[in-house]
């Protein structure tokens, strides 16, 4: 089997240049590539375009890279819960493109599936439709949306093997599988890296063909945004 293992996050992100277009997996702070983000902070690359459903919080996730002014543009569906984000947006330092969540997911999926465009009903009649081609199918109007692809995709999985096969856990799967497929170079970090043969092929969510580099992540914080509990 092809071995895709790199030593750590720093080695994995070594050649990400300034102005790169990145995809970062995760929904809220769930399933985000914590180690790769930390390595990008250390590396100090600038002018990044980040395609990610959310923009983290002030002191975690992509929010950390906003603080260090490494992000030029965010492409997301929801960017609340981040005061620094708001400040940079209002001052014009940060560019933001907001996309309906399902359209974002499908544009990324299309990018990984070799489909340059598709039609969706989401956003018809709204400002999202401005400048986009519409077409009627069966009496309903749809909007043409284009694929999204990235120079580098940074994804986080629960388990992975040395060949790059990945298994996600719970709702930490979210955008990770589509982003893994849509990256020109895909970097996967995992909580548990195992030798080939250890993962049941029946259970693989992302086949290793999509993954170029994989490393054993360290010190996962897995921060919770809204801790809601009931009495035991």
């Amino acid at each position: 089997m092809i071995n895709k293992v790199v030593a750590d996050a720093d080695e994995a992100v070594r050649d990400i240049p300034d102005q790169a277009v990145l995809m970062l997996g995760g929904f809220g702070l769930c399933g985000i590539p914590e180690n790769a983000i930390a390595a990008l902070l250390r590396k100090g690359v600038k002018g990044l375009t980040c395609i990610s459903n959310n923009a983290g919080v002030d002191d975690f996730g992509i929010g950390l890279m906003l603080k260090t002014r490494q992000v030029k543009k965010m492409i997301s569906s929801y960017v609340g819960e981040n005061a620094e984000f708001e400040r940079q947006l209002l001052s014009g330092e940060l560019e933001v493109e907001l996309i309906p969540q399902g359209t974002l997911a499908e544009r990324v999926r299309a990018g990984g599936a070799g489909i340059p465009a598709f039609f969706t009903p989401a956003g018809v009649g709204t400002e999202v439709a401005a400048g986009k081609e519409t077409r009627d199918f069966g009496g309903k109007t749809y909007l043409m949306e284009r694929w999204l692809r990235a120079d580098f995709s940074l994804v986080k999985a629960w388990k992975g093997d040395t060949a790059g096969n990945l298994i996600y856990r719970g709702t930490a799967r979210n955008f990770n599988p589509m982003m893994a497929a849509a990256g020109q170079v895909t970097i996967a970090e995992v909580e548990e890296l195992v030798p080939v043969g250890q993962l049941d092929p029946n259970h693989i969510h992302t086949p290793g063909i999509y993954v170029h580099r994989i490393f054993q992540g360290r010190g996962y914080e897995k921060r919770i945004e809204q801790r809601t509990t009931r009495k035991a």
Partner: peptide, 26 residues
């Protein structure tokens, strides 16, 4: 975000950071 079958909020002992709803609640 990717689940059919949302259950009640977890007890403190059941909290799992890999399980959230669309409002980012555990």
């Amino acid at each position: 975000n990717g689940l059919l079958g949302i259950g009640p909020f977890p007890t403190e002992a059941e909290v799992d950071p890999d399980l959230i709803n669309a409002g980012k609640q555990t």
